[in-house]
Design a protein around this nucleic acid. Structure first.
Lengths: 106, 106
DNA sequence: GCCCAGCCTTACTTTCAGGTAAGTACCTTA
DNA sequence: TAAGGTACTTACCTGAAAGTAAGGCTGGGC
């Protein structure tokens, strides 16, 4: 495993998380929560609809978010994490733990 | 721990890693390696001097890179990771392992 | 005395993620 | 018939990150 291949592996992961809003959305969905589009809008007031749908679509394409459409009027669309998406929680914990180390050593 | 505080915690970590070149540089320094500026230039041919020094300085400011100046002519400056920087390796492994999970489940 | 290696800086340009604002489509209720 | 809720789209704009290219500093060797 060369420095470049390892780096690009991590970069691919970060590309999934990158974007101003992905993490905020993720943390709202962690724990198996199922939220509607409008729930997320309300939970994250600063986000625009465009950004919300854009980030959700990307995360869906990346396979960490599941989109559930209920065919009814008014429309109802729910979002939750895939199993793989939920598993991300533990990996992010590793990062937080690492960040906490800084205090200990500095 | 609210969704927003957790997200911002992770975001702070990602801010340390963000930038087109940080990870590439990091992986060249993992394992306790000590490299000169010109070594890094050679190891990462696509990077410009400006970007290299910029990312190194930021990582130094963030406390993950140590800069060692030898006062001599021609100048000699070496870069290596702090202990905290080295510890990052394990956290990134968690991300890679998570990424590997995808194959298993998809 | 001037040129070179090695490290870094500065000024200018380009590119793109993200922001704003408005519009679409659908059906239901009044 | 019109008003309104829900999810999403489109067009346009802006600022920050990254790229390019060139220049500066230093003292020893020629």
């Amino acid at each position: 495993m060369t420095p470049l291949s390892a780096a690009s592996g991590v970069e691919n992961v970060l590309r999934i998380l990158e974007g101003r809003w992905k993490l905020v959305i993720l943390f709202h969905l962690f724990g198996g929560k199922v939220l509607r589009f409008s729930d997320l809008e309300r939970a994250i007031p600063a986000i625009s609809q465009k950004m919300l749908i854009q980030q959700l679509r990307q995360m869906e394409a990346d396979g960490i978010v599941r989109r559930i459409v209920h065919h009814q009027v008014p429309p109802k669309v729910e979002y939750c994490l895939t199993d793989w998406g939920q598993a991300l929680c533990r990996a992010l914990d590793a990062l937080l733990k690492w960040a906490a180390l800084r205090e200990a050593e500095a």
